[in-house]
Amino acid sequence: MSKYLLDKFLYTVDRDPELVERYREDPAGLVTWWESEMANSILNCHGDERSTWLAFTDEERTALREHDHVTLFEMGAHPFLTLTLFIAMFERDHGPLEYQIAYGKAMEHLTLPYPDIAT
C-alpha cells in the first residue's frame, strides 16, 4: 500500500481545475489516465526523468474510482487533501455546509486512534 501515491493523486488533482472536473465527471477514466501518465512523474523534473516503480494496489484504485472518501481515510490518505478535493467536486451540489457535515457523518463509525497518515 502506498499512502504516498494516494496523496500524490489527491494533491495533483486538487491543484488543477481541469483535473478536478475530470475526476468529478469520469473518475474511472481519470484514475486510469493519472496512473499511466502522472503516477511516476517527479513533480519538479523534466518529463524524461521519471520514476519507475509507483503503482496503485487494486484496493486503492477502486477507492479512488468510487470516490470513496471513507476508505481513503481508512487507508491513511491525508485527510486534508481528501477533504479539500471532495469539497471542490461536490459542495456545489448541496446547501451551505451540508456536504461537509454529511462527509463527517459518513465516518461516524470511526474511532480513535485514526489510521496513521505518515508516509
Binding site: F73, P79, F80, T82, L83, G104, E108, H109, L110, Y114
Partner: peptide, 10 residues
Amino acid sequence: LELGGPRQFG
C-alpha cells in the same frame, strides 16, 4: 481542529 474526519464541522 478536525479536518476530513468524523468530528469535523460540528
